[in-house]
């Protein structure tokens, strides 16, 4: 069972305090978008064996959303950061690179 550090309240929360929210950093497409764009936004998800970025809510705690950079194969957590972040911050990306040189996720590397 995972433990994730909530960057909002500072608690190292076990999974039962958290609610998962799926893939992070999705770009919303609304009216006016093409069918392909909307399909991609609504349905297409990364399913990596390795580095992934996921949304979590500290549901039983401070109620805030954050993003975890995590390895899906080993469950190693490279870092967590607030959901009010458009793209993975550089320090998180550096932490991943230190552990997993050559990693890639979507168009990130």
């Amino acid at each position: 069972m995972l433990i994730l550090h909530c960057p909002h309240c500072g608690v190292d929360a076990e999974e039962t305090e958290l609610a998962p929210g799926g893939e992070a950093h999705l770009k919303r497409f609304g009216p006016g978008s093409s069918d392909a764009e909307f399909e991609s936004y609504l349905f297409h998800r990364e399913n990596p064996r390795g580095v992934h970025f996921e949304r979590w809510r500290h549901a039983f705690g401070c109620g805030k959303w954050f993003i975890a950079a995590r390895a899906t194969d080993t469950l190693e957590v490279f870092g967590t950061y607030r959901a009010q972040t458009a793209a993975p911050p550089q320090d998180i990306r550096d932490a991943i690179t230190a552990k997993r040189p050559g990693w890639a996720w979507r168009d990130l590397a």
Binding site: A19, G21, R57, G63, K64, W65, A83, Q84
Partner: peptide, 13 residues
Amino acid sequence: HAHMEDWLQCEWW
């Protein structure tokens, strides 16, 4: 309530 907070925190922060 969670739905509202999701949009407020993660999309229109």
